[in-house]
Simulated assay, not measured.
Amino acid sequence: MTDFPTGSFLGAVPFTLLAVVVVLGGTFLVALRLGRHAVVDVSWGLGFAAIAVAAFLASEGAGDGLISGFALVLTVVWGVRLAVHIGLRSRGHGEDPRYVELLAKAPGNPQLFALRRIYLTQGVVMWFVSLPVQVAMFTQGEANAATWVGVLLWVVGFTFETVGDLQLTRFRNDPSTRGQVLDTGLWRYTRHPNYFGDACVWWGLSLIAFSAWPGVLTILSPLLMTWLLAKGTGKPLLEKDMASRRPGYAEYVRRTSGFVPLPPKKHTVAPTGEAS
């Protein structure tokens, strides 16, 4: 069994926590100045990138160069790409309806409530989900099959997420598709190619950490990320009232996989002449 520098890893924890505080603390100040907390969505990807950089610097080369290099570069590329995409998408828009609804229920000062319910919660989840990346920076085993499968899975996920976002952006910017449902391209096979891709990215990064002990101990991190995307704050919230806002969405849901890409269900006609 490969030795793991537990002391060095624990010594890096304050720096990764500080990275979270700096990113989200700065975002909170920006949100107060702009008057909208939707900017916290941009910091989601940037926070992971900052944690990866902090862990890499704190490791001081303690881990295998190839494994730690993959963990650093792939996390930063994913995080920055996501931040830029969300930033461009939200530019010129007001507050996110999710945060409007949440802050309307604030029992006291809405800004302190937002700090606790939005920023603190996101920071805790961000740090926990990033544990595989943090551990990978200190992994001393050599790259193996798990490493390369992880890189391949990251590529698949990053492609799904990026292409899915591009297709959705093009669809939203086309005036002729107003009120319609995107059911072409990757969106023909899954209602959320970007969320599916996101999950693959984090399973890929986790497999890189699983290359050696104790990366396998961080398996709860990708499980949490997948749950959030498929069952938590991702897919369910996005689809909450979609059917009422977009005619045809209920039929789209009937024939299209909710998460994992699958061939769409065929539209069949029952003997009575009714669609089924």
Rank of each mutant, 00 (worst) to 15 (best):
T2S: 15
T2F: 15
T2R: 13
F4R: 01
F4G: 00
F4A: 03
F9W: 05
F9A: 03
L10S: 10
A12Y: 03
A12Q: 04
V13I: 10
V20S: 04
G25L: 01
T27A: 01
F28L: 06
F28W: 07
V30L: 03
L34T: 08
L34S: 11
H37T: 13
H37P: 07
D41V: 01
S43F: 02
S43H: 01
A50P: 00
I51M: 04
A55W: 00
L57G: 08
G63L: 03
G69M: 02
F70R: 00
A71Q: 02
A71T: 00
L72E: 00
W78V: 00
V80K: 05
V84G: 06
H85A: 09
I86M: 03
L88V: 15
L88F: 14
L88N: 14
L88Y: 15
R91S: 13
H93G: 14
H93I: 15
G94W: 10
D96T: 05
Y99D: 02
V100A: 11
E101W: 06
A104P: 07
A104L: 10
A104E: 11
A106S: 13
A106L: 10
N109I: 09
N109Q: 14
P110Y: 08
A114D: 03
L115H: 04
R117A: 15
R117N: 14
I118A: 05
L120W: 11
L120Y: 12
Q122L: 05
V124I: 12
V125Y: 06
P132I: 01
V133W: 02
V133K: 00
V133M: 05
Q134Y: 15
V135T: 11
M137H: 03
E142S: 12
N144A: 10
A146C: 13
A146S: 15
G150R: 04
W154I: 13
G157A: 10
T159Q: 13
F160W: 08
F160E: 04
E161G: 06
T162Y: 11
T162V: 10
D165K: 01
R172W: 05
N173E: 04
N173Q: 11
D174N: 01
L182V: 04
G185D: 00
G185I: 02
L186A: 07
R188A: 03
T190C: 09
R191F: 04
H192P: 00
P193T: 03
N194G: 09
W202Q: 02
W202V: 03
G204Y: 01
L205S: 01
L205T: 03
S206C: 12
A209Y: 02
A209E: 04
A209K: 02
S211C: 07
S211T: 02
W213G: 05
V216Q: 13
T218P: 05
T218K: 04
I219C: 10
L224A: 07
W227A: 10
A230T: 11
G232N: 08
G232D: 06
G232E: 08
T233N: 12
K240S: 15
M242Y: 08
A243R: 12
S244F: 13
R245F: 09
R246T: 07
R246L: 09
P247F: 08
Y249L: 07
Y249R: 08
V253Y: 12
R254G: 12
T256P: 02
S257W: 08
G258A: 09
P263C: 08
K265G: 07
H267P: 14
T272P: 14
T272N: 15
G273Y: 11
G273F: 12
